[in-house]
Design a protein around this nucleic acid. Structure first.
Lengths: 169, 169
DNA sequence: GCAAATTAGTTGCTAACGAAACCAAGGTCA
DNA sequence: TGACCTTGGTTTCGTTAGCAACTAATTTGC
């Protein structure tokens, strides 16, 4: 860890912590606003939530895969995937095909109706992302991209660290 | 991002939406990981959740304010603030003082115990944020900061836009 | 001065979340 | 082969979220 000798404030009373500048807070506010903006755009029209959207998009991207693989690729807890899949299956947007070699899992894929919805939805999502990115100075975009990658990586490490230090205790 | 000319699939219907590169998705994953890393660090030791943490920090920063002001400053729905305040009050970390000029609201502030907790907590949070930022290339940090600000701004606009277009319909 | 609208904050209700228990199918190893 | 462990996926359960309805205090408009 890097030193922080540069910032040597009187520890006790000086409120060195400004919530509005605090990175985790800002990330959370940003992510919530962005998610809610996006889902406002499609939630009403297509009647799906974020987890369903992710499953749909993942299947649109890869064609056919197991629930486990969907979860791994879209960073979702298996219960979330399970419920989203059930939802989409009930609406006949995806289908399940048994894997004869391993009856625990099954292969999921989009139905024609699901593919149709995906084909409508994907460009909307892309346009939305572009509209967002337009607001960011073009010179800052690669840095943003790199930074998010690093933050994901580092916070993943920290989560693992804490989990480990707890295990050995 | 890297080019994908190699992957030239049925161009018309395949808009190449890669979830793993999709900004809203990446932001959400990032924010969730960061929040969960941070709260793992203090949740067990201090027995508070994110909303309580935010109230505590806001009061630590500003000294005395109404629930409404806390909500505005920390981007929290009033019910969240209300419940977090109730929680903290029960644990005698904050107190309520009636406003004789407007009996609907009351002024909240940290008790000595609350201040003590804040004084312990704030440096931990700051260290955590620094540890995160260390992972980001120093040259990219200002860009990250600007970008988040812009994204918050723009997505706020979009939310308002959609709400308005709905109103007039 | 008072009825109607507004505002600060709380509460009730339902949906969504994730941890943990669970179930059924596979794998391991003697 | 058969006990035991692991794994993919579902279900249960307790917690948390936010919308909407509510209460109580204040402001507005006539």
């Amino acid at each position: 860890m890097i030193d922080d000798t540069a910032e040597r404030v009187t520890a006790a009373s000086e409120p060195a912590l400004r919530l509005e500048d605090f990175l985790p807070y800002r990330l959370n506010v940003c992510s919530n606003l962005v998610s809610s903006a996006l889902s406002r755009i499609y939630a009403e029209r297509y009647r799906i939530g974020v987890p369903e959207w992710r499953v749909l998009v993942t299947l649109g991207q890869f064609g056919m895969m197991t629930a486990k693989a969907i979860g791994a690729h879209s960073c979702m807890h298996k219960t979330k995937v399970s419920r989203a899949v059930a939802q989409l299956e009930k609406r006949k947007l995806i289908t399940r095909k048994a894997n004869r070699d391993d009856m625990r899992e099954s292969f999921l894929s989009l139905t024609p109706a699901g593919r149709e919805m995906y084909d409508e939805l994907a460009p909307i999502a892309t346009r939305f992302a572009n509209r967002l990115l337009d607001s960011v100075d073009a010179a800052d975009r690669p840095a943003l991209d790199r930074a998010i990658g690093r933050l994901i990586e580092r916070s993943g490490e920290i989560v693992a660290d804490v989990a480990n230090s707890r295990r050995g205790r």
